[in-house]
Design a protein around this nucleic acid. Sequence first.
DNA 1: ACTGCTACCGAACGATCGGTCGGTGCAAGG
DNA 2: CCTTGCACCGACCGATCGTTCGGTAGCAGT
Lengths: 252, 252
Amino acid sequence: MDNFPRPPEQDADQTVRTSSERAAPGRAPGQAPLDAPAGVGDAPASIGRMPTVKRDTYTPDSLLSVAVRVFNERGYDGTSMEHLSKAAGISKSSIYHHVRGKEELLHRAISRALDSLFAVLDEPAAGEGRALARLEHVTRRTVEVLMSELPYVTLLLRVRGNTDTEVWAMGRRREFDQRVAELVKRAAADGDLRADVDARLATRLLFGMINSIAEWYRPDRAASGHGTGGGDTSAEVAEAVVRTAFAGLRTH
Amino acid sequence: MDNFPRPPEQDADQTVRTSSERAAPGRAPGQAPLDAPAGVGDAPASIGRMPTVKRDTYTPDSLLSVAVRVFNERGYDGTSMEHLSKAAGISKSSIYHHVRGKEELLHRAISRALDSLFAVLDEPAAGEGRALARLEHVTRRTVEVLMSELPYVTLLLRVRGNTDTEVWAMGRRREFDQRVAELVKRAAADGDLRADVDARLATRLLFGMINSIAEWYRPDRAASGHGTGGGDTSAEVAEAVVRTAFAGLRTH
DNA sequence: ACTGCTACCGAACGATCGGTCGGTGCAAGG
DNA sequence: CCTTGCACCGACCGATCGTTCGGTAGCAGT
């Protein structure tokens, strides 16, 4: 039991556009092209093309950011291509100009989440020093990644295994879990974790805490500083999670 | 990130029947009639009808137990009436003989979950004594209810707000959350909870831990006693959750 | 002016969706 | 034996699903 702010009440949800050039009715490409890591659908590496200036058409990645938002509001299975086209402000068939189909959008989103999460395990502080310190680092960083890549990780966490992509995602996610469970076991062997809670159970409860952040954190409400109505910076929340998980809620 | 055992690989999932009387091809009514609290679709109170002997046809509640299982495997939106009919071993149209439709099944399941959860708040130990003790009691009992009513509560936890039923469920769930949050605030005011973690955030993290149980606990694997592969009794898990949440994972 | 390409469109595809309808077999009651 | 009613069925409904197809407007390069 916990939280989540608003049920999606409105239905005519069309992303409002900021800059318009075409004469066509309101479209709304995302703001993504600047954070896109390596545009898959981009034109091959030519010289000109001035890459940073305003982009008014969709790329696979800017379309993805819209799609992921809708997926998280309605659930993947509950989202139709019609819903996506309405939210993106382009026709249903136009979506297929950018991506192969619905499942590719899911795959791209989940890949991005998994890559960010696995990158945490490759950080130096995740491999050096006492196991407890490494575990605390991974916990803190996982929280931060979850919050910075919120919509993508949220999608990953909700996967049920209905399609090939989802089965693959569940497998990769289990890999990640086991890497962290290894850390928990090692810290327990060092005598740094309480002995009366099983290591596997402890791992699950730790992840339970971390992952639940996806159910209430809303970045738009952050940095307003008044309590924890879904706001707070990711470093603050990460610190609170580490404190709560390792030191407990109770005073001594 | 955490667990969940097996992706639903098989597709020809038909509940295997134990007793057969009809000549028709394999059907499989659930084992539910004995735990049904007050059979809604049952015949009016007549005298005979010998109520306890073997029941070979579906009741709304026995059908519900099948439906909820499938809902949890494929997700509500990912489950078609065809899926349900295959799993129940009766035709699609026959389902409508017992319930009004797909959404009624969801409503019945979620009602059952919510009733069980709210009942915890009405227990004497949830209203008497120091706030911290009451909070620990509610935590322990919520874990136990979650595990005993696992499939129904799981369904509740996954609701997205797409239909009227789901919006209603989210509202009721938020009520429950706020009742518990009240307890947390009171315990914090008593000085029994650490002051450096916001009460609202603490509530969310506590629920994060509790609710995550629905993602890995599998009752069929319980009572085998070897570690925490999804087994364990609900009292054991509840105790571990209380210890971890309030005392923390770390040794002192 | 012509060509080629990108980003989009409306119309339509077969499949599947949740749900309705008119039955049918059969056990129980008279 | 005949009637009644429950539990079930196959056939079918209009709507919607994800996807495909044949365009077309507008811009860049020549």
